Computed example of a mutant assay.
Amino acid sequence: MSKVYQPALLCLKNWGDLDTTPQGRKTKKYFLDSYDNFMQYLKSAQANAGEGIKLADNTSEKINLLEIKGVTECIQVASIPEIVSDMEDLASIWCRQIEQILAESDQMRKEADDTGPLAELDHWRRLMARFNALLEQIKSHKCRMVINIINIARSKVLKVQ
């Protein structure tokens, strides 16, 4: 749209009746401004789509979290100290990553106090994209299994975090 339609609209010399009356010129300007705002919104949405956060992955070769299906399997895994230790390390890494994300979002907000309404909307869209990506990962099967395992093992990591 930005490479074909927008240049075509901007190069268009004859807008018919819209060029002949003051109301028509106002309508033309309103349309072009609205189209430009829409293009900015699409660019922002595209940038925000790549803004996703990726939590650290399970680096332990001892267990595949996707194979754990229920509480009974979590109980069995929670009885193996090496795996519990790996899961505690992973949960600690996740907590640090989430703290960093929250600190960065707070910092971005403080730097942008004198912005206009469109920049403000863009800021909140970006934040929403980041937090939605984070939330989807937190709700994932892997994350739930890690939390279940360290919870069953009565890990102190959950109390500290």
Rank of each mutant, 00 (worst) to 15 (best):
V71G: 06
S92W: 02
P117N: 06
N14M: 11
E51K: 12
W124R: 12
R125V: 02
N48I: 06
F31G: 11
E82P: 08
A47R: 13
H123D: 03
W94Y: 04
I83P: 03
E82A: 12
K28F: 08
E51F: 06
K62H: 03
S34W: 13
E67K: 13
M108Y: 10
K28H: 10
V77F: 01
G116R: 04
E61Y: 01
N132P: 00
A47S: 13
T27I: 13
W15I: 04
E61T: 15
E82R: 06
D36W: 06
D122N: 10
D33R: 02
S92K: 00
E120A: 12
K26T: 15
L55I: 08
G52E: 08
G70Y: 01
I93T: 13
Y35F: 15
S60Q: 07
I53C: 05
E67P: 00
A91K: 01
T20E: 15
S60W: 06
N48T: 10
L135V: 15
K54N: 11
M39W: 01
S34F: 14
A45W: 00
D89T: 09
E120L: 10
V77Q: 03
F31E: 08
T115K: 07
Q40I: 07
I63R: 00
F31M: 13
R130S: 12
A47G: 08
K29R: 14
E104W: 00
S85K: 12
V77M: 00
F38G: 08
W94E: 00
G70F: 05
Q97D: 04
N48M: 09
D33H: 08
L102I: 05
R125A: 04
G24N: 04
F38I: 08
S79T: 14
E73L: 01
Q23K: 04
Q137H: 10
E120R: 13
R130A: 11
T27W: 00
D33L: 07
P117K: 07
N58L: 12
L42T: 15
E120Q: 14
K26L: 15
L102A: 05
Q137W: 05
I93W: 02
I63S: 01
R109W: 02
R130C: 04
I138H: 01
Q100S: 05
